[in-house]
Amino acid sequence: MNKRQLWFLIVLLLGVSGLVAAPLRVQVQDVALRAKPSYLGTVLTQLPYGSRVQLVQSQGAWTKVTAGDISGWLPSASVSQAEVEMNIGSEGATTSSNENALAGKGFTEQIEQNYQKERHIDYTWVNRMEKIQPPETILESFVKDGPRGAFQ
């Protein structure tokens, strides 16, 4: 292996390590950071949309991350290595080309508000639906009696 090829490999490996260790962003409204890779794992903290976390390891449907000084597990589908779009004009919005492409799709809270106002659409039941929280007693019965599939 000549010098040039050796340098290429070094640069390649550095690039690769940077890619794998790149920060991730939470791409769902909010997600529980759990102590173990299970939906029944203790909730360490809630992370809102757009939160930046660092990848530690991936284990199928679960990803271990650090958020500040807390380390825990998130469902892999709840994080993305791509920039997530913020509200157009919001302070948190960046101007990365990726974000512009996403913001450019345009179906955001601002559009929903205008749509509701112009068409007199009633979102009462939708808002109520989103707030439904099954009581602990029902969830505990699934833990106790099963089924013992992916949820456990």
């Binding site: 997530v84 996403l102 799709k105 559009i111 929903e112 039941w125 639906m129």
Partner: peptide, 21 residues
Amino acid sequence: EQFTPRQEYYIGRAVAADITS
């Protein structure tokens, strides 16, 4: 990139609002 999870959510909310009406 066609629809991010957040955009899918706003589409879903509007469809859901139609259904409940």
